[in-house]
């Protein structure tokens, strides 16, 4: 047994560029560098949180991890297999192992199918997983597992459920083939606060019981802190910082991480007038034409000439930061 056996997913220098149409027909408008060299490992049974603002490339990353999107370069390895090189039987086997839960349970479930049909579908695509005769029992088990009544809800349609219940159905579908990894792309963002906590608790319980690893992608830093063992921060297609949850939140080393954390409203009115907040100027620059050197330098308060010339690399092991002037631990 090598250490690598504990790794379920290895992501190496993943890149995805999208060509943009120019203003005139038949011209090119350059490329959107949606994901531009992202690397990380995922260990068995852990939760890696990935945070970032809109347009940072986190959803494109999610789609590449499960094979819905083909990388421009780089690779995602599951065990010894490269996800995007696999074909035929191997590809189907891989897809069983890596599943996805999407943000919007209203559009990710087919409105014309009952819950029974939705949850039987994975077994129709992968018929070798379970005998036909045992599938319905398994579907009921899955519903019970996610806290829905397996006998009561089978023949209902998605619109007959609340948003939180629909997200549970989406999670049941992702669990059907007993994956090792579930990529959760903003799984609780569309839910009310009171329902969000139910789904977060459910995901944590399922991880304890089933040992599944999560890549938990979200813009809500508080939810990510709650659920993650390790966290990576993404800015304009790159990871700028990566580390264990406590270190990253309590002592951010990248200025962007620090600014992001300080922008989150704190649910405590006492002392709010004294709270120090780093207000970043402006919006993130366009990923079509990112700044030279460090991509964050246009909004960074400590940027120097070096930052405009040399791109910082994500240096370090478990705790890594891509900054020429990392912040000292407080």
């Amino acid at each position: 047994m090598s250490v690598d056996d504990e790794l379920v997913l290895r992501v190496d220098d993943l890149v995805r560029h999208f060509p943009v149409k120019g203003r005139l027909p038949f011209t090119s408008g350059g490329v959107v560098k949606a994901v531009d060299g992202v690397s990380f490992d995922l260990r068995r049974g852990e939760t890696l949180g990935i945070v970032g603002e809109s347009g940072c490339g986190k959803s494109t990353l999610a789609r590449m991890l499960v094979g819905l999107e083909r990388p421009t370069s780089g690779e995602v390895r599951f065990g010894d297999a490269v996800v995007h090189a696999a074909r035929g039987r191997n590809l189907r086997a891989l897809r069983r192992r890596i599943q996805i839960v999407l943000q919007d349970p209203y559009t990710s479930l087919n409105p014309r199918r009952t819950v029974r049909e939705i949850l039987l579908q994975p077994f129709e695509i992968h018929p070798d997983v379970l005998d036909r005769g045992r599938r319905l029992d398994r579907v009921k088990e899955l519903l019970d597992l996610v806290g829905l009544d397996g006998s009561l809800h089978l023949d209902r349609y998605p619109h007959q459920f609340s948003g939180g219940q629909r997200q549970r159905i989406g999670i049941a579908r992702a669990l059907a083939l007993q994956p090792d990894v579930i990529v959760c792309d903003e799984p609780v963002s569309a839910l009310d606060v009171s329902v969000q906590a139910q789904v977060v608790n459910l995901l944590e319980r399922l991880q304890r019981e089933l040992g599944v690893a999560y890549v938990f992608i979200a813009h809500d830093l508080s939810v990510v802190r709650h659920i993650s063992d390790r966290v990576a921060v993404m800015y304009l297609g790159k990871l700028v910082e990566r580390g264990p949850e406590r270190l990253l939140y309590d002592a951010p080393a990248h200025p962007y991480t620090k600014a992001l954390l300080s922008a989150v409203p704190v649910p405590e009115p006492v002392g709010r007038a004294q709270r120090k907040r780093i207000l970043l100027a402006g919006d993130p620059p366009s990923p079509v034409d990112p700044p030279s050197g460090c991509r964050f330098r246009t909004r960074c308060w400590q940027a120097t000439e070096t930052c405009a010339i040399t791109e910082p690399v994500l240096a370090g092991g478990d705790r890594a930061v891509a900054c020429h002037y990392p912040l000292a631990a407080a």
């Binding site: 009171s194 329902v195 608790n201 830093l221 802190r225 709650h226 405590e268």
Partner: peptide, 18 residues
Amino acid sequence: SMPRIDRRDEELYAIPGA
């Protein structure tokens, strides 16, 4: 039921139902 940015709680209280 709200997760906190300034600390990590073991489990969130969840209001049942919707």
